Simulated scan of single mutants.
Amino acid sequence: MSDYSHASGPGFRARPAAELTDVDLRPDLYDGVVTKRIGAFVVDVVLISVLVLLGYLATFVMGFLTLGLAWLAFGLVFPAIALGYHMVSIGGPWSATPGMRLMGLEMFETTGGRATWIVGLAHPLIFWISGTLTAFLVVFIALFDARGRTLQDMLTGVVVVNRLPG
């Protein structure tokens, strides 16, 4: 397999895997990533919360129109919206959630390719499950990892880096 992945997305330029994973080769890719990820997380939580509230409102209204049948879906609103948000944004052409884009971050597979929608699905699921089981102590791994990787990054084979021009 080549060090370069296939091109995709607006202005996508394939990156060699070594460029993305070697901190000594490109320290600028990882400068401030952990702090930016925290900011991106806050932005994404706010955006997902707004979408979930709109989803609950729509489900509530639909419940009246369906004589209460739609109210059975209340428990599915949050997971469907949150997972959909991550799948579409991480698996999309920018390989980043809106919060990550705002903070100047993007996600790549360690092979150099863009993250896929499968990563967009697995990444938040691993975060929620491992975070629930460990009271979110798993995110502290990023403080001790040279690349600022969390457990879910390691398990899905991705790195989050500063966006490079071009």
Rank of each mutant, 00 (worst) to 15 (best):
S49E: 10
I38Y: 09
L69S: 10
L57P: 05
W71T: 10
V52I: 08
F74Q: 11
L67E: 15
L47G: 02
D31A: 15
G91V: 12
V52E: 01
V34P: 05
D31S: 11
G68W: 03
G55V: 00
G68P: 11
H86T: 07
P79L: 14
K36F: 06
S89A: 13
Y30F: 15
V88M: 15
M87F: 06
Y56S: 00
I48C: 00
G55N: 00
F60W: 09
L47Q: 04
V33L: 06
T59G: 11
V34W: 07
G39C: 05
L29P: 07
Y56I: 02
D44V: 03
T59F: 04
F60D: 08
P93L: 06
A82H: 03
V52G: 01
A82V: 02
L65V: 14
V61P: 07
V61C: 14
V33T: 15
W94A: 13
Y30R: 08
A82W: 01
L57W: 12
K36N: 04
G91M: 14
F78P: 02
M87L: 10
V42W: 04
R37T: 01
V52D: 00
V77H: 01
I38D: 04
L65G: 13
A73G: 02
A80S: 15
L83Q: 13
G68Q: 03
Y30G: 08
P93A: 14
A58N: 07
L76A: 14
G63A: 00
P93C: 02
T35V: 08
L53S: 15
T59N: 12
L51K: 03
G84P: 07
V88K: 11
G39Q: 04
A40N: 00
G91D: 10
V45P: 03
K36I: 03
I90E: 15
F41I: 08
V34A: 12
L69C: 11
M62H: 05
A70T: 07
Y56K: 01
T35G: 11
V34K: 08
P93G: 15
L57H: 07
T35L: 10
A58G: 11
G75Y: 03
T35S: 12
G84N: 11
L76D: 00
I90A: 03
I38A: 12
D44N: 05
V43S: 05
S89C: 09
W94C: 09
T59L: 04
A70S: 14
R37N: 06
L65A: 15
V34F: 09
Y30M: 09
P79R: 13
I48K: 00
G32P: 12
L57D: 08
T66D: 09
G68A: 05
D31T: 08
D31G: 10
L67K: 10
I38Q: 12
L47P: 05
S49H: 12
G68I: 01
L72N: 07
L53H: 12
L72S: 15
A58W: 09
W71Q: 14
M62P: 03
